[in-house]
């Protein structure tokens, strides 16, 4: 069984500064998304358990000019090969374009029995890509997987639902999107990082995939929360007086006592 893990890199959100309500991403390093790391870990664990032969990490650069460098983390975590799709026309793609490119790349990779994704990306978390790719490739898809087992031509997953755990099986080939409970991704050691350097890594353009530049179907008008004025009221006096004044003010504002 061969596994392809779709891996997105995104700016390290912890490192993003906000200045004048605008996220400052200049100089912020990219890293592989958290749930994608879970998916990678799941794939490598399956291979280590003998259930899979090969794990390929597939990454759409999406404007990360160092994607081919950053994807080496996936190789260090245990993927056998990596493919990066990097094309200027895909610098800021919408989900439809992402899915089309990934589906085409999976086809070009060829052998793929199990296709793994994170449930959503760490930055946008639209949660669409796994399902879209599965649809484009005509694969059965299992979402919210917290456990993945593969045997006898089928994949069996436990799904985290709100108030229950569902166990679902699908014939291979299939697509699975995973959630964070599934495992604790390994932090690769120096030796693994050094070995990753000599693992196969290919970079493809849209032309390599036989695709045209996608026409955008999405336009982001704003993703800022509505600005709200603060009241700037400072209460003075003893703790008890402050509390009284505070409750009064809240009541006046109609927040309390309705």
């Amino acid at each position: 069984m061969d596994i392809v893990v779709c891996v997105k890199t995104n700016p390290d959100l912890e490192m993003v500064r906000v200045k004048d309500r605008v996220a400052q991403t200049e100089g912020v390093p990219y890293k592989i998304g958290d749930l994608e790391k879970n998916a990678l870990e799941a794939a490598v664990a399956l291979r280590e358990a003998g259930a899979a032969a090969k794990v390929t990490a597939l990454c759409l650069a999406e404007g990360n000019r160092k994607a081919a460098e950053d994807i080496k983390t996936a190789l260090a975590m245990g993927a056998d090969e990596a493919v990066v799709v990097d094309d200027p026309a895909l610098a800021d793609p919408d989900e439809a374009a992402v899915a089309a490119a990934l589906a085409a790349a999976v086809k070009k990779i060829g052998a793929c029995d199990l296709l793994l994704f994170g449930e959503g990306s760490s930055d946008n978390y639209t949660g669409q890509v796994g399902a879209r790719v599965a649809e484009l490739l005509g694969l059965p898809q299992i979402g919210y997987a917290r456990k993945v087992e593969a045997a006898d031509g089928a994949v069996r997953c436990e799904r985290s639902m709100d108030d229950m755990i569902e166990t679902v099986e699908a014939p291979l080939p299939a697509a699975v999107t995973v959630v964070s409970e599934i495992n604790e991704p390994r932090i690769p050691g120096l030796m693994q990082i050094m070995k990753a350097k000599s693992k196969p890594l290919q970079v493809w353009s849209l032309a390599d995939l036989g695709l045209e530049a996608p026409a955008p179907v999405r336009e982001i008008v704003s993703n800022l929360a509505k600005e709200q004025d603060r009241k700037h009221i400072v209460f003075e006096g003893t703790a008890a007086e402050q509390a009284d004044a505070f409750v009064d003010a809240l009541t006046r504002e109609g927040v309390l006592g309705r």
């Binding site: 490192m15 100089g27 912020v28 932090i187």
Partner: peptide
């Protein structure tokens, strides 16, 4: 160790 601790920007 590893990825931890303060990270200056």
């Amino acid at each position: 160790g590893g990825p931890y601790g303060v990270q200056y920007r």
